[in-house]
Write a protein that binds this DNA or RNA. Structure first.
Lengths: 187, 187
DNA sequence: GTCTATAGATAGATAGAC
DNA sequence: GTCTATCTATCTATAGAC
């Protein structure tokens, strides 16, 4: 979680932009609202990001950094890459997840760059999972479940599909996926 | 698909609002843009929908009608409810799918009603699937795959996870799900 | 039922003081 | 590096003609 008060003004602006995108959507994420949330003036914000597009690019650049770290974490996870991947598909409290959800909000609007960033992320994840399970169809299905978890926790909070990462419900889903992985590798 | 030219002005306004939400996002879906797309003036639009909130409500009311029809179609599908459910999770050309995607755009913003409508829809789908597979964990996993398909085709068009409903990739996913259903009912 | 005209609020962005 | 003041465009909504 970003430490709002100690970070530099530039980082606080990015954190504020993310927060408003996540909690109120793209429409509410104006320069004025972002500046207010970050505790600076509109002019102050525009010193760091000369336009709204520049602000969006700043968000996407940070996302790309987080993704690089995450892909390596999936690959080397002690609990196993698939378990790690699925559980981290709904942890809304990491910097990465916040960046992903904010980017998803932008991807709903006219921001092709945001869509591209999410596609690149999916590609990196897919490659790791294929590497682990050695089966593209199975990897695709696992990715779909991960996307479904994201859809529910990020886009439809409070909905039926929202699952606590540490809950029995989540364990059951992972058990089912492991059943599938064994059924395939046995075939 | 809505027939834009022959429909009443009221329906054309709703179709236009949906189209802009789907293709350009919430931010672009202003009253002015919607009126222009529908071929009426802003004043003309506001005769049918007295405010933007009323326009949103009109969209959600139409969604609810479509969902009722769809749930019955899932239950009675000849190809089987699960196959039908998963394949229809990425058909972007039906009135229902257009309404869902448009509502998903609104759910990203400050529209709790839109989120509630999608939750209600999920609940109705979940009930049918539980009824069919007789297993809540399995039903949840199938729902997640369906949500993943939606996430990719509706929110991330052109991405890795986007699958043609009639493709081999889609058949493989359905085969995997059927494997899971059999593995469970056998246990 | 549909239009034009317009009000009042708010958007993104610039200029210039400190 | 951060601020206030201000410009221009666009937003939602109202009023009233046709």
């Amino acid at each position: 979680m970003p430490s709002a008060s100690t970070a530099s003004a530039r980082d606080r602006v990015l954190d504020a932009f993310e927060l408003i995108l996540i909690t109120q959507g793209e429409r509410a994420a104006t320069l004025e609202a972002t500046a207010a949330e970050a505790g600076v003036s509109k002019g102050g914000l525009l010193y760091h990001f000369g336009s709204k597009d520049a602000l969006v690019e700043g968000l996407l650049a940070r996302l790309a950094e987080y993704v690089d770290v995450d892909v390596e974490a999936i690959r080397t996870a002690e609990i196993g890459p698939i378990d790690y991947f699925l559980r981290s598909s709904l942890n809304l409290e990491s910097d990465l997840d916040r960046a992903i959800i904010a980017t998803t909000r932008l991807a709903q609007g006219s921001h092709p760059q945001a869509r591209d960033a999410l596609k690149a992320m999916q590609g990196a994840w897919f490659d790791v999972i294929v590497e682990v399970v050695g089966d593209r169809a199975l990897a695709r299905t696992i990715m779909l479940i991960g996307d479904g978890l994201y859809y529910n926790s990020a886009l439809l909070p409070g909905g039926l599909g929202e699952i606590d990462p540490a809950s029995d419900d989540m364990n059951e889903v992972i058990d089912l996926v492991n059943t599938l992985v064994r059924a395939r590798s046995g075939a």
